[in-house]
């Protein structure tokens, strides 16, 4: 555990110094600011506009962070030969991988927190009840986006163990799109006539991450409560899916010859 923590801390410190992350954070904050500034274009629906574009913005920024952190960490360490120094010590490859994941997750958490605060302020500014309109659903929706980003981070990390950063960027983006339309794949599966087709679609829908699980915009906009207990299933889903992808990435990384 100590090894994983040490690698996570080192990864966090190293990543947080990257200027690109600062730029991404600025972009996120700018997006939220622009959403508030231009919400007047949607007269009567400003609140809806801010909630929707704000959360979508944080989701997309999360995708960018996952790609940048997950896709570049390992290839960069291989290029700089840092990885040989680390792996020559009593550090197993799974500890290394998991430590990297935890460190990157910490960086994303910090950036998401900052964007989350900005979003919460924007939410309250545009809510008809002002700051009195702030509810537990706001942090819950932000937390759900964070969980989704963790899955993307795991996917990017897994891909980066065997592929170049460019390939990782495109492939992670592709996984994101597939995950976003997962409910449609399930829909097709449920509607299929033949059992074979149904099985193929349903299996596919289980293999692809279901990003629909993490979307609470509808509930937030419709003032519909989501029980915190229901979120536990989503946390469990994230843990299992990220664990599964990290497991695969360990196998791939384990096989890799440097």
């Amino acid at each position: 555990m100590g090894v994983i923590w040490a690698i996570a801390k080192a990864t966090y410190r190293e990543s947080i110094r990257q200027r690109v992350l600062f730029v991404v954070l600025l972009l996120g904050l700018l997006l939220i600011g622009v959403t508030v500034a231009f919400s007047y274009l949607s007269t009567g629906e400003e609140f809806r506009f801010v909630v929707d574009f704000g959360l979508v913005g944080i989701t997309l920024i999360g995708l960018g962070l996952a790609v940048i952190l997950g896709g570049f960490m390992i290839p960069n360490e291989v290029d700089r030969r840092v990885i040989f120094t680390i792996l020559s010590k009593p550090v197993s490859r799974w500890q290394y991988l998991f430590g990297k994941f935890v460190g990157a997750a910490g960086v994303i958490l910090m950036l998401d927190l900052l964007m989350g605060i900005a979003f919460s302020v924007a939410y309250c500014v545009k809510h008809p009840l002002g700051f009195g309109g702030f509810t537990y659903m706001v942090p819950m929706a932000l937390f759900a986006i964070y969980l989704q980003t963790l899955i993307l981070l795991a996917v990017a990390l897994a891909l980066s163990t065997i592929a170049t950063p460019i390939f990782t960027i495109f492939a992670t983006g592709f996984v994101y799109v597939l995950g976003a339309v997962n409910s449609q794949v399930t829909y097709l599966g449920n509607r299929a006539e033949s059992t074979g087709t149904k099985l193929v679609f349903l299996l596919l829908s289980k293999l692809i991450p279901a990003f629909t699980n993490f979307d609470l915009r509808s509930a937030l906009l419709n003032n519909q409560p989501v029980e915190p207990a229901a979120m536990l299933n989503v946390v469990g889903y994230t843990a299992l899916y990220a664990g599964l992808v990290l497991g695969i990435s360990w196998i791939l990384f384990h096989e890799r010859e440097f």
């Binding site: 976003a180 409910s183 449609q184 829909y187 097709l188 979307d215 609470l216 509808s218 519909q224 989501v226």
Partner: peptide, 14 residues
């Protein structure tokens, strides 16, 4: 006071 058919509305219903 409120009718919410589903929490899912991402993606265009086919």
């Amino acid at each position: 006071s409120n009718v919410l058919p589903s929490l899912n509305d991402v993606g265009m219903p086919l």
